[in-house]
């Protein structure tokens, strides 16, 4: 359906070395996060009594060392990466679905409906997010689902605004009128004409909101309202590591490097995507 878009983007990305490198690093990391833990010798909550706080490459099998309780840092980092990526992907997906639908309908309908829908967005924008998250965790507990809901509940607002602006501009284009003359109904016009044509900026924004979600999750963790200990995310490990910075610096370095790498790569990939999509935007 959107073949011309994808073939052009693919061609542009194929010429972009930075994008290819970042994509490859991300793919390796994601694969490691999914498959890695089951391939390694240690489980994430397994305590090695003989190697506590072992530095990297010292103890057999603990390539990146262990933490204070003798748990393998590599396994825990991969697990944390899995949790962080899952939260980021899910939150972005939520914001993508709600934001695109909300914005496309508001922009296409215009008038009073649009005003009502966007004022609702403004009201949510005005709520202090951290305060809202604290209430959520008090009511529902500190699970990954709560964090996901907290990030998702606000993440779609910006997406809705971006999409609405695009939809407002698109609905005035001739080909929308051509679809109306062709008898297409509102649902079909939005699904087949509006949404495919605003996918460019949406993809870029979605890509850039992935690291935002990861960083927001670590910020919540820093406040002590993030994911709970056993289901550690990357930022849990960083928080733990920060406490042991002077005696066991690798406990901080390993997850922090991993987080930086992921955020860096996604950001670069998002930038490249935007560049790849730009020439089309007339």
């Amino acid at each position: 359906m959107t073949g011309s878009l994808w073939s052009e983007v693919r061609a542009a990305l194929a010429r972009d070395r930075l994008a290819i490198t970042c994509g490859a690093i991300l793919a390796v990391l994601a694969l490691a996060a999914i498959a890695g833990p089951s391939l390694l010798d240690y489980r994430e909550d397994e305590i090695d009594w003989s190697h506590m706080a072992a530095p990297p490459f010292e103890a057999a099998g603990h390539w990146l060392g262990t933490d204070r309780l003798g748990r393998d840092l590599l396994v825990r980092t991969l697990y944390g990466l899995r949790v962080s990526l899952a939260i980021a992907l899910a939150a972005t997906f939520v914001s993508l679905v709600i934001g695109v639908a909300w914005g496309a309908f508001a922009g296409y309908w215009r008038g009073r409906t649009d005003a009502l829908m966007m004022r609702f967005v403004d009201v949510l924008y005005a709520l202090p997010q951290v305060f809202f998250v604290i209430i959520l965790t008090v009511v529902f507990g500190r699970g990954p689902l709560t964090i996901l809901a907290a990030i998702g509940a606000f993440g779609w607002l910006t997406m809705a605004r971006i999409v609405r602006g695009q939809a407002l501009a698109l609905r005035e284009r001739d080909f929308i009128e051509a679809a109306v003359v062709g008898g297409a109904g509102t649902a079909r016009i939005i699904a087949r004409h509006i949404v495919p044509n605003l996918l460019g900026p949406v993809i870029v924004y979605a890509t850039l909101s992935l690291p935002q979600a990861i960083l927001l999750e670590s910020f919540l963790n820093f406040l002590g309202i993030g994911v709970q200990e056993l289901l550690a995310s990357l930022s849990n490990l960083i928080a733990d590591g920060a406490a042991e910075m002077e005696t066991a610096p690798w406990m901080l370095a390993v997850p922090a490097t991993c987080l930086m790498l992921v955020v860096f790569c996604i950001n670069f990939l998002g930038d490249s995507l935007r560049d790849a999509l730009d020439p089309r935007e007339r």
């Binding site: 359906m1 011309s4 001739d174 009128e177 051509a178 087949r192 495919p196 044509n197």
Partner: peptide, 11 residues
């Protein structure tokens, strides 16, 4: 339509 390029969905 007047402008054929604008009256076709580019996607």
């Amino acid at each position: 339509f007047q402008d054929p390029a604008a009256s076709f969905d580019p996607r």
